[in-house]
Amino acid sequence: MKTQGKTHKVGDHIDTDAIIPARFLVTSDPAKLGANCMAGLEPDWVKRVNKGDILVAGRNFGCGSSREHAPIAILGAGIPVVVGHSFARIFYRNAFNMGLPLLEIGDEVDKIADGDKLEIDLEKGSLRNLTKDLEIPFQPIPPTMREILDCGGLVGYVGKRLSGDK
């Protein structure tokens, strides 16, 4: 995966109720969920997002409910990757399972300002802040997660295993 995009920065402990409030969980359609992405933070947040933009989060992003609708809403809003200080564990699994890579960068997150342009190359393991001309290191993505991403998510990954079992 190689991508470039403008960042939208959010704070610490953004919970999944903020990412997609429960009242929208009556559907699992990515477009419908995407249209309400971050509605629990700010009702019209998603209106400022253009396809390909990158979400930059603080500590413990995605804490709270296990709703998989949260990474689906982010993908549905056109955001292909999230960079953050750290991620809540259920959200971490869910994001990769849905094909949304997460880059964990700890305190380096302070080197990215809202609106900065980032370039990410997952194969090369590189994250660059183009606005500030900085290379930012990130925690390597574990092999299990890479395999899942390579299959487009867990559905593809298990599908492969089930068809191999036959």
Partner: peptide, 14 residues
């Protein structure tokens, strides 16, 4: 422990 729906789908299958 809690997980997302697709992890649970995998557990239901496997």
């Amino acid at each position: 422990t809690g997980m997302g729906s697709t992890d649970i789908a995998a557990a239901m299958a496997l």
